[in-house]
Simulated scan of single mutants.
Amino acid sequence: MRRALTALVLLAAVGGGVAWWLTAPDPIPESELAGLTGDATRGQAVFAAAGCASCHLAPEDESAGPPVLAGGQRFVTQFGTFVAPNISPSPQGVGNWTDAQLINAIARGVSPEGQHYYPAFPWTAYNKADLQDLADLVAHLRTLPPSEAESLPHEVPFPFNIRRSLGGWKLLFENRDFVLQADLTPEQERGRYLVEALGHCGECHTPRNPLGGLRTDAWLSGAPDPAGDGQNPNITPAGLQWSEGEIVAMLQSGFTPEFDVVGGEMAEVVRNTSQLSDADRQAIAAYLKAVPPIESPAPEPGTGDSTAEE
């Protein structure tokens, strides 16, 4: 019996050590970041494509001028409520972070302290972004107005508040490859980069499994809003039957072919896509028409059951 107990203790210790190693943060190697110099002017376009202001502006902030990324917006999900942090270039924000720390936060979901970030922050999409683009984005962030607002803690219950467990989530669900692997034109490839990486469109328009992983088999086919406020629409050709020109026009003006105006979170998206070049909006449209048509799937148990249209 003593030998059996000793063996069980040793086995548990070994298993715990392996689990600890497997769930460790995986930052970008320093060699890949060496020599990167960001360009703030180029970074402004990356900032718009990535939609940073949509989440990190303070609630109800509609002031003109350069955005103040003070944070504070709340995002309600089945796992808890996540609060966007201050990412302005102040000591309360990210002003004291190095460029490498910022890039690792954006692309790998790793904090300067070596903790995992929740995938409510879409590093799961930004992990496909070009490192030069991220360096340019960081350079632009440093030009924006600082805010002294303190970042508020997330309201996440046990067991989801165990940060280390996110390492296991990453092992199961993080995907650093593009979803659409078809033979694409250069324009469609640019659109894929804007949609799947910088624009992180799949985060809202793709259904999730009960643990919050994206169901890439139903890519962009629509998903319940995490807060339970209706349904984010299907934007594959099975659901979005607009022409490329109509998609481009909506991304620039917010007007749909039905002479309606997009609202809610999509209005925030249009504020960003309207700042892109004509070529980039056209590339997004070309990609969306190249995505395989998928009928909107029924929600999986535990992922929400709202079916109201956006």
Rank of each mutant, 00 (worst) to 15 (best):
M1G: 14
A4D: 10
A4F: 10
A4S: 05
T6K: 00
T6I: 12
L8S: 14
V9D: 00
L11D: 00
A13I: 13
V14Q: 09
G15N: 08
V18R: 07
P27R: 12
I28F: 11
L33E: 03
L33W: 09
A34N: 15
A34H: 14
G35W: 13
T37E: 14
A40D: 06
T41E: 15
T41P: 11
G43W: 05
C55M: 02
C55R: 01
A58D: 02
E60F: 14
E60C: 00
E60G: 12
S63A: 14
A64V: 07
A64C: 00
A70C: 06
A70W: 03
G72S: 09
R74H: 09
V76R: 11
G80T: 13
N86M: 09
P89W: 03
S90D: 10
D99I: 06
Q101F: 09
Q101G: 05
T124Q: 08
T124K: 03
K128R: 15
A129W: 04
D130F: 02
L131N: 06
Q132A: 11
D133W: 09
L141V: 12
R142A: 05
R142Y: 08
T143G: 09
S147I: 08
S147C: 11
E150Y: 12
H154C: 07
E155A: 13
P159L: 01
R164K: 14
G168M: 08
G168I: 06
G168H: 01
W169P: 07
K170M: 12
F173H: 15
D177G: 14
D177R: 14
V179C: 01
V179Y: 03
Q181D: 15
D183M: 02
L184C: 06
L184K: 07
Q188V: 05
Q188W: 02
R190L: 14
G191D: 10
G191K: 02
R192H: 02
Y193V: 00
Y193Q: 05
E196S: 01
G199W: 06
G199P: 06
G199Q: 07
G199T: 08
C204K: 07
H205M: 02
T206P: 02
P210H: 05
L211K: 00
G212A: 04
G213V: 04
G213D: 05
T216Y: 15
A218G: 08
A218M: 12
A218Q: 12
W219A: 07
L220D: 05
L220F: 07
A223C: 10
P226Y: 04
N232H: 13
T236I: 05
L240R: 09
L240H: 07
E244V: 00
E244N: 06
E244W: 02
G245F: 01
G245E: 12
I247W: 03
V248G: 01
A249G: 02
G254E: 04
F255Y: 08
F259Q: 13
V262C: 00
G263W: 05
M266E: 05
V269C: 00
R271I: 03
R271M: 07
N272T: 12
D278K: 10
A279S: 13
D280Y: 05
R281M: 13
A298F: 10
A298Y: 06
P301A: 07
G302Y: 12
G302I: 13
G304E: 03
A308R: 15
E309Q: 15
E310P: 11
